[in-house]
Nucleic acid binder design. Structure first.
Lengths: 164, 164
DNA sequence: CCTGAAATCCACTATTG
DNA sequence: CAATAGTGGATTTCAGG
């Protein structure tokens, strides 16, 4: 099991960093009632153990260029390991596909794509289908508006709700 | 139009921050060939103009607790403004719903939910349906694996691809 | 909008409890 | 493990072009 016990202080450190990755160590230490040195060593430890992965800045892409975001439901023709691997590798090379999820249900993958407009989305769809990476079906679900922004995982609920 | 022209340097600043929000100003300045003070004032300006929103740390939630992530397709019973608003407000209060997208297609919303297990997801589904917030249909699409991680928007492609 | 210097603040490292 | 204190280095401000 790749799970690790967290004490209350580490939990609060993760909560703070989730919402403000550029907080200074001093401010963070103050918020969690720790000395800066103790806080820093905890933070480093959380990084080393992989509990904190990357630090990302949110860019307001739609203030830079006009943007079409969409989900794309993908069904593959075949479902051997090699088919999934080929698809994943092709997707990794497409910068406009910003995230890819293997799912269970009416289709095999749900992609999130970000493109300038519908023309480019159609073009991307053509490219992927003709790339011979085993796509049987390609269904576009345009995003009208993101009505709730990702604001960190519900850490407390996950810990309280889990058996272990 | 809420779009803003970016010079090459600001573009590179955004690219760097997208991938590493905790880069020091000195390192950032070096990478974009600017003095630290010039780099800092550009960064502050990008923040003030809202081109950089929040800074987020990625927490490895599945190393902390066992985790079920899923998409949920929601269809509403009615489609007046007030119906959407009521739904959005209810969703805002649910920490396990980490993101919500209003979409165009076979359903009205696509949610991303993060819960400890399928039991809690069923419970959440029951709660939402019985909350009388106008949900007509609720379809769960469990995530097996995220095969491409969000790694920033394709800034260059968006700028090159757009007309303006 | 930049550079460069000066001042302030912070990260990081002993050291000690 | 945590606190305290010290130092090197980074951030930030400001004068000047």
């Amino acid at each position: 099991m790749p799970e690790m016990k967290l004490d209350r202080i580490n939990l609060r450190i993760l909560e703070e960093l989730q919402k403000n990755a550029r907080i200074t160590n001093q401010d963070l230490a103050e918020r969690v009632n720790l000395s800066p040195s103790a806080c820093l060593s905890r933070m480093r430890r959380l990084e080393e153990e992989g509990l904190i992965g990357r630090y990302l800045a949110e860019v307001a892409i739609d203030r830079i260029a006009s943007t079409l975001k969409a989900f794309v439901e993908i069904t593959l023709e075949n479902h051997r390991q090699a088919d999934f691997r080929r698809f994943d590798q092709a997707i990794a090379r497409q910068p406009e596909v910003v995230a890819s999820y293997k799912v269970s249900g009416r289709f095999d993958y749900l992609l999130m794509v970000v493109v300038p407009d519908m023309n480019r989305l159609r073009q991307l769809s053509d490219e992927l289908i003709e790339a011979e990476i085993g796509i049987a079906k390609f269904v576009t679900v345009p995003i009208i508006e993101q009505t709730k922004l990702f604001d960190g995982y519900p850490l407390r609920e996950m810990i309280a709700g889990a058996g272990g």
